[in-house]
């Protein structure tokens, strides 16, 4: 049975609206990261770059980081309806950047019962089995040149124990890579931000990351965390890139399975 052309058109419109919504939500976070990046550049070039930066130089980032955590005001030019998504935000220094700490994160997390808290972790691979952070995608992406990285969804057992996305951008100072500006967004909050738009799409629709991991979905058969292994044109699905972000919206073709 063929689907009436008007319904097909309505499906396309809703899919385009969902793509716009996802883009808006992600861009809001990247906008905050660009601010952190610009502020971090000033911090890591102290005294006009005439001496090496130290941990204390990064304290100047704190007012901005606190303001961009959930509950903080969004930059004035962003749409007011954007939900505050950021649960953790900060600057991750490239190993060896700082004169007084080979490994360092200036990382702050929201705290429902008060002021934001700084992440407490021993990041030195010599004493901790865990965190050579250069292996994590949120660091490896920007350090190998990616303009915008979206890592996850993944279980963030380093900081929050939550199912999270980490968005990150490179920080370049004086022409060389100095570290990463990054923000954590809980999957459940990202879902809340985009589900109203996904729900409007008549058939099954889900958002996947560059690897095919489902980030949010309007169907229980493709819930967040599952994997979509189809290609960009596998016949049953239409795949729409979300701007130039590493995210795609997948919808079932009208009359296709699911």
């Amino acid at each position: 049975m063929s689907t009436p052309a008007s319904l097909v058109q309505a499906g396309h419109d809703h899919a385009a609206a969902a793509v716009a919504r996802v883009r808006e939500a992600a861009e809001g976070v990247f906008e905050a990261l660009r601010e952190v990046r610009d502020a971090a550049v000033a911090c890591v070039l102290p005294a006009g770059g005439t001496r090496r930066p130290v941990v204390a130089d990064l304290a100047a980032l704190r007012p901005l980081l606190w303001a961009r955590l959930r509950g903080g005001a969004l930059p004035a030019h962003l749409p007011a309806h954007l939900p505050a998504l950021i649960a953790g935000i900060g600057f991750i220094a490239a190993p060896g950047l700082l004169a007084d700490a080979p490994w360092y994160l200036e990382w702050w997390q929201e705290n429902p019962s008060g002021d934001p808290v700084q992440l407490l972790r021993d990041m030195d691979p010599a004493s901790s089995a865990f965190y050579d952070y250069t292996h994590w995608d949120w660091y490896a992406g920007p350090s190998s040149g990616a303009e915008r990285t979206i890592c996850g969804p993944y279980v963030d057992y380093l900081c929050t124990d939550e199912y999270s996305l980490t968005l990150s951008v490179p920080v370049l100072a004086g022409g060389s890579f100095a570290g990463v500006a990054a923000a954590d967004v809980f999957v459940r909050r990202f879902e809340a931000a985009v589900l109203p738009a996904l729900r409007e799409i008549p058939g099954p629709a889900f958002l996947v990351n560059a690897e095919g991991r489902v980030v949010a979905s309007n169907t229980a058969s493709r819930v967040a965390g599952s994997v979509y292994r189809g290609g960009p044109r596998d016949g049953d699905h239409v795949v729409r890139r979300v701007g130039d972000l590493p995210l795609s919206l997948v919808t079932a073709t009208a009359g296709g399975p699911e």
Binding site: P153, V155, E162, G225
Partner: peptide, 10 residues
């Protein structure tokens, strides 16, 4: 963590 379950990881 590869199971994608935060609860199982915890």
């Amino acid at each position: 963590a590869a199971s994608q379950s935060a609860r199982l990881t915890q």
